[in-house]
């Protein structure tokens, strides 16, 4: 059975002049038990898609189902079966860690005791602070509490909208480790992130930009599909080097990439002639390179 099915969903928001298309004809199928990453920058449409799947918004056209239930017709049933963590921290800051958790367990007609095994791993990291008000926790702790609250009713499907945004690197790593272990429990997880480097931690990823799904596949397949030679270049004057690369006929596209510049070569092009003090090596494309390349093809 499929955990999540999305058929040709579109959604736009009215603006003063015209409208803003948040999602354009999205097609997606996520099998049960998959850890799926929705990767794209701010404003790509990630949150809108989450809200449609969690029954908070109706699509303009198209249909979607979660756990085999229609998001429009069976919305009350879906609300019983899914866990949702919105992009903003959405717990009661004036309640303590423990009070928040008990409250969420209660509104889902369950108790913390009943499903403690599910949240044990997350909760034990925040348990020392259980008498502390949620508003006083650090960013990483807040995210862990929010995850506990979203999990407490043993949802079949878990929606996490940018859980790692604004969280420091250590907490991010811990959070992903938690998601991997939840996946082992058989929960379908859909998680969105603006960080390209988190793609490799997902079973499959969808690259989304300006409301369009540019590609859906495993991270490895996406990289294999890059299909062009990619060079990593470094020199003493990086700005000069970048301008030089961008001006070359054999280079399709060149851009800064951390300490290096990346240059995508035109089909079957030879390595360009560069001075000896320039360090050049051929590299495997990163998900970010793939994203850039897909953005360019989609922009036309």
């Amino acid at each position: 059975m499929n955990g999540i099915t999305i058929n040709n969903i579109s959604k736009s928001y009215p603006l003063k002049k015209g409208k803003q298309e948040a999602l354009k004809n999205i097609e997606l199928t996520i099998p049960e038990g998959e850890l799926f990453g929705l990767i794209g920058p701010d404003g790509a449409g990630k949150t809108t898609l989450f809200r449609i799947l969690t029954t908070l918004l109706l699509p303009d056209s198209g249909t979607a189902s979660v756990n085999g239930l229609d998001t429009t017709k069976d919305f009350m049933q879906i609300r019983k079966e899914v866990g949702y963590m919105p992009g903003r921290f959405s717990l009661y800051t004036d309640l303590t860690v423990e009070e928040n958790l008990n409250f969420f367990a209660n509104i889902f007609n369950t108790s913390v005791k009943e499903n403690y095994h599910l949240i044990k791993e997350v909760y034990k990291m925040i348990e020392p602070f259980k008498k502390v008000r949620a508003g006083k926790l650090s960013g990483g702790m807040k995210q862990k509490l929010a995850l506990s609250c979203a999990l407490i009713h043993k949802p079949k499907t878990l929606f996490l909208d940018e859980p790692t945004t604004g969280v420091d690197a250590v907490s991010r790593k811990e959070f992903w480790e938690l998601l991997r272990s939840l996946r082992a429990e058989g929960i379908t997880i859909m998680v969105s992130t603006p960080y390209m480097d988190e793609a490799s931690l997902c079973d499959r990823v969808g690259l989304i930009q300006q409301g369009s799904m540019m590609g859906v596949d495993t991270p490895q397949h996406l990289r294999n599909a890059f299909g062009k030679k990619l060079l990593s270049v470094k020199g003493p004057d990086m700005l000069q080097l970048l301008r030089q690369l961008q001006a070359m006929d054999t280079v399709e596209h060149a851009y800064p990439f951390g300490e290096y510049h990346h240059a995508v070569l035109k089909d079957a092009a030879f390595l360009p002639e560069l001075p000896a003090n320039i360090e050049v090596k051929e590299v495997e494309p990163d998900i970010e390179d793939c994203f850039i390349s897909l953005m360019r093809t989609h922009a036309g």
Binding site: L56, M76, R79, K80, P86, S90, I107, F108, A150
Partner: peptide, 9 residues
Amino acid sequence: TLEVMLVSP
């Protein structure tokens, strides 16, 4: 939090 409350039974 209303968003989370709405996505509850």
